[in-house]
């Protein structure tokens, strides 16, 4: 373990302790110095934030705006603690488009839920779906922050038992049966993983890599694809949006590439829409448009 990881772990544990013992207002006040600390030391993330905000605002962002971007991320991380610890009474969550899901759930029709690193997808996992008695399996590519995950797992092991770590030959076997029984498979569609199939889509003015996985899985399962985002709208307010991305994905081999591109481009367009609605909710703090890798 590196020095840095060790200290991140220590600080995380401290903030979790403060949040649960001393309460959300005190923990939220502490987010200001914590955000400042990370902004000073994380050069690359700061550059990534500035590059993204430049595209959104069509001008160079101020230091204050970059700070706000980071701070919004810190706020959602903190709220995750409360969701995972089952202390979610103070959240004000507005849900849009739930009727899209209601029909599928009533018909016991399985579907694919495709989210993004926008706002807080964990809020959704912790709240909306848990209360609906839906069986959701979440696909996770790699475990990129084991320390953070370990702490959240301690808070609520139940939320992690349905995570499928993609990264072994057999990871996805049997998911078709889960969906056929009316189960849901959730994944995030805005990170392409090296070695997996991917497609270039226009996003905020330039092509970027998106994974083909959402479309490929939907085609194998023959199920609808639903987009979900959960935007943080200040303090304890969250706006959840569900949208039908594709009613039923089914294509022949020769249309495959075209369908993948069309569907993921539609997804990228919707992400762009939500980024413009809530600019500080974009949480991919790396060079998203880097096509070299």
């Amino acid at each position: 373990m590196t020095q840095r990881e060790r200290s991140t772990g220590f600080w995380l544990q401290t903030i979790v302790w403060i949040a649960l013992r001393l309460g959300r207002p005190i923990a939220r006040a502490l987010l200001y110095p914590i955000t400042a600390y990370f902004l000073i030391f994380a050069d690359r993330s700061r550059q990534a934030s500035a590059a993204y905000l430049t595209r959104i605002f069509d001008r160079t962002p101020s230091g204050k705006e970059i700070f706000r971007h980071y701070h919004t991320f810190a706020e959602t991380l903190l709220d995750r603690v409360f969701v995972f610890a089952d202390r979610d009474e103070f959240f004000q969550i507005r849900i849009h488009g739930f009727e899209v899901l209601e029909k599928l759930i009533a018909d016991k029709q399985g579907f694919l839920l495709v989210g993004a690193h926008i706002g807080s997808f964990e809020i959704l996992r912790g709240l909306a779906l848990r209360h609906k008695g839906l069986s959701v399996k979440a696909l996770v590519y790699g475990e990129n922050s084991p320390k953070i995950n370990a702490i959240f797992r301690t808070l609520n092991p139940d939320l992690f038992k349905d995570i499928v770590y993609v990264g072994s030959a057999n990871a996805l076997l049997g998911l078709d049966e889960h969906v056929a029984r009316g189960g849901v498979v959730a994944l995030l569609g805005d990170r392409s993983v090296h070695g997996e199939k991917r497609v270039l889509c226009r996003f905020l003015g330039e092509d970027a890599w998106f994974p083909a996985a959402p479309v490929l899985l939907a085609n194998l399962f023959k199920v609808p694809v639903i987009l979900f985002v959960c935007l943080h709208k200040g303090d304890a307010r969250y706006d959840v949006h569900f949208e039908l991305l594709a009613d039923r994905v089914a294509f022949s081999r020769h249309e495959r590439d075209e369908k993948i591109r069309d569907c993921m481009q539609h997804y990228a367009d919707r992400l762009e829409h939500y980024c413009r609605e809530a600019p500080y909710n974009w949480f991919n703090f790396y060079d998203f448009w880097d096509r070299s890798g």
């Binding site: 049997g174 199939k197 899985l217 194998l220």
Partner: peptide
């Protein structure tokens, strides 16, 4: 091949040869 390819392959095998390969096998 990636994990989605192997999922697809397992579906083809199930259809063609009538047996399933599960992840907990």
């Amino acid at each position: 091949l990636d994990s989605i390819d192997l999922l697809e392959l397992s579906l083809v095998i199930s259809k063609t040869y009538g047996f399933q390969i599960k992840s907990d096998d």
